[in-house]
Amino acid sequence: DWLCNKCGVQNFKRREKCFKCGVPKS
């Protein structure tokens, strides 16, 4: 899993964008 750089929420590995704020995975 990965943490969003913008809002800090945890996302599933398969996600390419944050489910909460929509910022692309970096």
Rank of each mutant, 00 (worst) to 15 (best):
C21I: 01
C7F: 00
V9S: 08
P24N: 15
C7V: 02
N11Q: 04
K6Y: 05
C4R: 03
K17G: 03
V9C: 02
C18L: 01
K20E: 02
S26C: 13
W2G: 03
C4I: 07
G22F: 01
D1N: 04
Q10S: 11
G8N: 14
C21M: 02
Q10W: 09
K6R: 12
F19P: 01
F12N: 09
N11H: 05
K6I: 06
W2D: 02
C18Y: 06
D1Y: 03
G8Y: 14
C21L: 03
S26I: 10
E16R: 03
L3W: 05
K20I: 04
S26N: 11
K6G: 07
F19R: 07
K25H: 11
K20S: 01
S26L: 12
V9N: 11
C18M: 07
S26K: 09
W2Y: 13
C4V: 03
N5I: 06
C4F: 07
W2K: 05
C7P: 12
W2H: 03
K25R: 10
K20H: 03
V23E: 08
E16S: 08
F19T: 04
F12C: 14
K25P: 04
F12T: 12
Q10G: 06
C18K: 05
K6E: 08
P24D: 11
D1Q: 01
C4K: 05
G8R: 12
C18E: 00
D1W: 14
F12V: 04
C21R: 00
L3K: 14
R15P: 13
C4A: 02
G8H: 15
F19D: 02
Q10E: 12
F12G: 13
V23W: 12
C7S: 02
K20Y: 03
K17H: 08
K13C: 08
E16N: 06
K20F: 03
D1M: 12
K25A: 09
C4P: 00
C7M: 08
F12D: 15
R15E: 15
F19N: 01
F19S: 07
V23Y: 08
K25V: 08
F19C: 05
G8P: 05
C21Y: 00
C7N: 00
E16T: 06
F12R: 13
K6Q: 09
C7D: 10
N5L: 13
W2I: 15
C7T: 05
K13M: 05
K13S: 12
K13W: 10
N5M: 06
C4T: 00
R14A: 13
F19K: 02
N5Y: 15
D1T: 04
R14N: 09
S26F: 10
V23F: 10
K13G: 11
G8Q: 15
L3N: 15
K17C: 15
K20N: 00
K6N: 03
S26Y: 09
K6M: 15
V9Q: 07
K6C: 08
G8W: 08
D1C: 02
G22A: 09
K20T: 03
C7L: 12
C18R: 00
L3P: 09
Q10F: 08
Q10P: 04
Q10I: 12
S26M: 11
C4Q: 01
K17Y: 06
K6P: 14
R15A: 14
K6T: 09
K25F: 12
Q10C: 10
R15G: 09
K17W: 01
Q10D: 05
G22C: 05
K13D: 12
E16D: 08
K13H: 02
S26Q: 12
K13L: 10
F12K: 09
V23M: 11
S26A: 06
N5R: 08
R14I: 14
D1K: 09
G22M: 02
K17Q: 13
N11C: 00
C18I: 05
C21Q: 00
K20G: 03
L3A: 11
R15F: 15
K17I: 09
V9E: 14
K25W: 07
N11S: 01
W2T: 08
N5D: 02
G8S: 13
W2E: 02
V9H: 07
V9P: 01
N11V: 02
K25Y: 13
K20D: 09
V9A: 09
F19V: 07
K13A: 05
G22Q: 05
C21G: 00
N11G: 01
R14E: 15
K20V: 04
K13P: 07
G8A: 13
L3I: 15
V23G: 09
N5Q: 12
C21F: 00
L3G: 11
R14Q: 14
F12I: 07
N5W: 06
R14G: 10
R14W: 12
Q10L: 12
N5K: 06
K20W: 00
C18W: 00
G22S: 05
R15V: 13
N5T: 11
E16W: 02
W2R: 01
K17R: 12
G22K: 08
K13E: 14
R15S: 10
C21W: 00
P24V: 03
V9Y: 13
G8F: 10
W2M: 12
N11E: 05
P24A: 09
C4N: 04
K25M: 10
F19W: 04
Q10A: 06
C21K: 00
E16I: 05
W2L: 07
N11T: 01
W2A: 08
C18P: 01
C4E: 04
P24M: 06
G8K: 12
W2C: 07
V9T: 15
C7I: 00
C18Q: 09
K20P: 01
W2F: 08
L3T: 13
G8I: 09
C18A: 01
W2Q: 11
D1V: 03
Q10T: 13
S26V: 11
R15H: 15
R15C: 05
K20C: 04
R14L: 14
C7A: 07
F19A: 07
R15Q: 10
G22E: 12
K13V: 07
C4Y: 02
V23Q: 01
G8L: 11
D1L: 08
V23T: 11
L3Q: 14
R14S: 14
Q10R: 07
D1I: 03
K6D: 07
P24I: 06
N11A: 01
G8E: 04
P24W: 08
N11P: 13
L3M: 12
P24H: 05
C21N: 00
P24R: 09
E16Y: 04
C7W: 01
K25E: 08
V23D: 08
R14T: 15
F12H: 15
P24S: 06
G22Y: 03
D1P: 00
S26W: 04
E16P: 15
V23L: 10
D1F: 13
V9R: 05
E16L: 11
V9I: 15
F19Q: 03
W2P: 09
V23C: 14
V23R: 06
N5A: 11
K6H: 10
V23P: 03
R14V: 10
V9W: 07
L3Y: 15
G22L: 05
V9K: 14
C21V: 01
C7E: 12
S26R: 10
V23A: 07
P24L: 05
K17P: 08
E16C: 05
K25S: 06
R14D: 12
C18V: 00
D1G: 04
F12M: 13
Q10N: 15
R15K: 11
K6V: 06
C21T: 01
K25L: 07
F19H: 06
K13T: 10
C4L: 02
L3S: 14
F12P: 12
C7K: 02
C21H: 04
F12A: 14
R14K: 14
C7Y: 03
C4M: 04
P24K: 02
R15W: 04
V23S: 11
Q10Y: 10
C18G: 01
R14F: 13
K6F: 06
V23K: 11
K13I: 10
N11D: 04
E16G: 02
D1A: 01
R14C: 07
E16V: 07
K20Q: 06
V9L: 08
K17V: 07
C18N: 09
L3F: 14
V23I: 08
F12E: 13
P24Q: 12
R15M: 15
K6S: 11
C7H: 05
K20R: 09
N5H: 10
K25N: 07
C18F: 07
K17F: 14
E16K: 08
K17E: 14
R15I: 15
F19M: 12
E16A: 06
K17L: 11
N5G: 10
N11L: 00
V9D: 02
N5V: 03
D1R: 02
Q10M: 15
K20M: 05
P24C: 09
W2S: 06
R15T: 15
K13Q: 11
D1S: 00
K6L: 10
R15D: 13
F19I: 03
K13Y: 11
W2N: 05
K25T: 02
W2V: 03
C18T: 00
N5F: 07
K25G: 07
C4G: 02
P24F: 10
P24Y: 04
E16F: 03
N11M: 00
E16M: 12
C4W: 03
V9G: 03
C21S: 02
N5E: 12
K17T: 09
E16H: 09
S26H: 11
L3H: 15
N11I: 00
F12Q: 14
G22N: 08
C21E: 03
F12Y: 06
F12S: 11
G8T: 14
R14P: 14
S26D: 13
S26T: 13
D1E: 06
F19L: 06
N11R: 03
N11F: 01
C7Q: 09
R15N: 15
K25Q: 05
K13F: 06
C18D: 04
K13N: 11
G22P: 05
R14H: 15
R15Y: 14
C18H: 01
G22D: 04
R15L: 13
R14Y: 10
K17A: 13
F12L: 09
F19E: 04
P24G: 09
C7G: 02
N5S: 11
S26G: 11
N11W: 00
G22R: 05
K25I: 08
G22T: 04
G8C: 13
S26P: 13
K17S: 10
V23H: 10
D1H: 06
G22W: 00
Q10K: 10
V9M: 04
G8V: 10
L3E: 13
Q10H: 11
N11K: 00
K25C: 02
C18S: 00
C21A: 02
K20A: 03
K6A: 14
G8M: 15
E16Q: 08
Q10V: 12
L3D: 15
F19Y: 14
F19G: 06
G22V: 02
K20L: 01
K13R: 07
C4S: 01
C4D: 04
P24E: 11
C21P: 00
N5C: 06
R14M: 14
V23N: 01
K17N: 04
C21D: 04
N5P: 13
P24T: 08
K17M: 12
K17D: 07
G8D: 10
L3C: 08
L3R: 14
G22H: 13
L3V: 15
G22I: 01
K6W: 02
K25D: 04
C4H: 14
S26E: 10
C7R: 02
F12W: 06
